[in-house]
Computed example of a mutant assay.
Amino acid sequence: MKKILIASFDMEVGGVERSLVSMLENFDYREYAVDLMLYRQQGDFLNLVSNKANLLGEIPQYATFRKSIGEVFKDKQYSIGLSRFFSKINAVLTGEIKRIAEPGYYQMQLMWKYALPFLPKIAKEYDVAISYLWPHYFVAEKVKAKKKIAWIHTDFSKVETDIKLDLKMWRNFDYIVAVSEACKTSFLNKYSELENKVIVIENITSPEFIREMANKIVHNPMIEDNRFKILTVARLSHAKGIDNAVKALKILKEKGYHDIAWYVVGYGGDETRIKEMIKESKLEDSFILLGKQTNPYPFMKEADLYVQPSRYEGKAVTVGEAQILSKPVMITNYTTAKSQVKDGIDGYITELSIEGIADGTEKLYKDSKLRDNLVENCKNTNFSNRPELKKLYNILN
Rank of each mutant, 00 (worst) to 15 (best):
P221D: 08
S180Q: 06
D162L: 07
A234Q: 06
L305A: 03
I152V: 15
Y126E: 02
D162S: 14
G70K: 14
G95W: 00
E58I: 05
I260P: 00
R311C: 13
T332A: 04
V72P: 06
L46F: 01
D243K: 15
K88W: 04
D270V: 03
L370Y: 00
D346I: 08
K216D: 12
Y114I: 10
Q340W: 09
K190R: 06
N220S: 12
Y312T: 09
D367H: 06
E271F: 07
I80K: 09
L119D: 08
Y137K: 10
K74P: 00
D35A: 06
P117F: 07
V265P: 01
K147N: 02
N196A: 11
I199T: 06
K76H: 15
I242E: 04
L289R: 01
K279V: 07
L167A: 11
L119W: 02
Y137N: 14
R30E: 13
N215M: 15
V198D: 13
T381C: 03
K113V: 02
P207K: 05
A316S: 06
K342M: 13
D259F: 07
L231Y: 00
L290F: 00
H153L: 12
N90G: 09
M108T: 13
E276L: 09
L56K: 06
K315W: 11
A248E: 08
R18F: 03
F156N: 13
T361I: 03
E276V: 10
L133K: 14
T336H: 04
P207T: 02
E355K: 11
K113I: 10
I122Y: 10
M23R: 11
P207F: 01
I59G: 05
L194R: 08
L396F: 08
S310T: 02
V21S: 05
G57R: 13
N385I: 01
K279M: 15
L36A: 09
R99A: 09
R18A: 10
A145C: 03
I395V: 00
Y175Q: 03
D285W: 13
L364D: 05
R211K: 15
T272G: 10
L364P: 04
V21D: 14
M330I: 11
S50E: 11
K52M: 07
Q107H: 14
D75R: 05
V72N: 04
E280I: 09
P117G: 06
R273H: 09
W170D: 11
S131C: 02
A129M: 01
N382F: 10
I223W: 09
D304R: 02
K148N: 01
L194C: 10
I130R: 03
F287W: 07
I210P: 09
N26A: 10
E12K: 15
N373S: 04
K146P: 06
V200K: 03
T332G: 03
I324P: 03
I354W: 08
M23H: 10
R40D: 14
S131D: 11
M1D: 15
A150I: 00
K52E: 12
A214R: 07
D259L: 07
Q107K: 01
L119V: 04
K247M: 13
T161C: 10
I230D: 02
T294G: 14
L133D: 15
F73P: 00
Y132A: 04
E302L: 05
Y348C: 08
F156T: 12
E208W: 08
P298F: 14
A234C: 01
E224F: 13
M1S: 12
F287S: 14
L231H: 06
